[in-house]
């Protein structure tokens, strides 16, 4: 997996482009002139300290939150004014950092919601997709369990399951590796690599950096709502800004 970055092998057409996104809650700016592009089939990692505005950025991209300024282009179309539901049907799917299960429905039914409502599948095709994804995310043995009675870890698995059942072209993952054991993390990395290899573009917010680095082609760093660094993962991790944020080493030292 150490060959040239995936995005250099395919033609350079951005699947997602965000231009100058701004969002403030009163005096608190949570997105400050955010811009970047994601190429078709690329995997982008997002890091930054807690409260830096990473999840807010996801909310803006997926349409859960409306920006004050700026534009979001998905597959070349301006989707800034589109609802979250419409963006999902166009091929965006996300996992929530704080899991949002349909508590009164079983794990399988949660998956079926994604398969039928966003991918527009029905009947046996939808059911088979859900079974396959549940097998992939190691939740098949809990298929009949009510989502509300799952452990936090399984709720995170369910987030990934639902996002995958939506058959996304752009998959957005928000901290799904935290709390996993070493072997679970390895299998999660493999799962995401497989999804990536099938041509799905990925944006992944993650504090478990080694998991992130095993998958992504490129990294951006966010702090105080703005992008402070962007580039190849190794360089970014070695940069003074990131060192300061993660290790507390001062830039000038």
């Amino acid at each position: 997996m150490c060959a040239a970055p995936f995005y250099l092998k395919v033609q350079m057409s951005p699947i997602l482009q965000i231009n100058g996104l701004n969002k403030a809650f009163g005096a608190v700016t949570v997105a400050d002139d955010l811009s970047f592009a994601l190429q078709q089939g690329e995997a982008l990692g997002v890091i930054g300290p807690n409260g830096a505005g990473k999840t807010t950025m996801f909310n803006l991209i997926t349409g859960t939150l409306a920006p004050d300024k700026g534009a979001i282009l998905f597959k070349g179309e301006n989707v800034t004014k589109h609802s979250a539901a419409r963006r999902c049907r166009a091929g965006m799917a996300r996992s929530f950092q704080v899991p949002q299960p349909f508590s009164g429905m079983s794990v399988f039914e949660n998956a079926m919601v994604a398969a039928t409502q966003s991918s527009g599948l029905s009947g046996q095709v939808a059911e088979q997709l859900c079974l396959d994804v549940l097998d992939q995310t190691a939740l098949l043995n809990k298929a009949n369990t009510l989502a509300g009675s799952l452990t936090l870890l399984d709720r995170k698995r369910l987030e990934l399951t639902r996002a995958l059942c939506a058959k996304p072209k752009l998959l957005m993952l928000d901290e799904i590796a935290g709390g996993l054991t070493e072997s679970e993390c390895t299998s999660l990395i493999q799962t995401i690599k497989d999804i990536h290899a099938s041509g799905v573009s990925i944006i992944w917010i993650e504090h478990v950096v080694h998991a992130l680095l095993a998958v992504v082609d490129r990294l951006i760093v966010i702090d105080f709502g703005s992008k402070i660094a962007e580039g190849a993962p190794k360089e970014i991790m070695a940069s003074p800004e990131v060192q300061e944020i993660y290790l507390g080493i001062e830039v000038d030292a």
Binding site: A85, C88, V113, R162
Partner: peptide
């Protein structure tokens, strides 16, 4: 929230 984000 989740329902909207899954295309409903």
């Amino acid at each position: 929230l989740a329902a909207g984000s899954l295309g409903i």
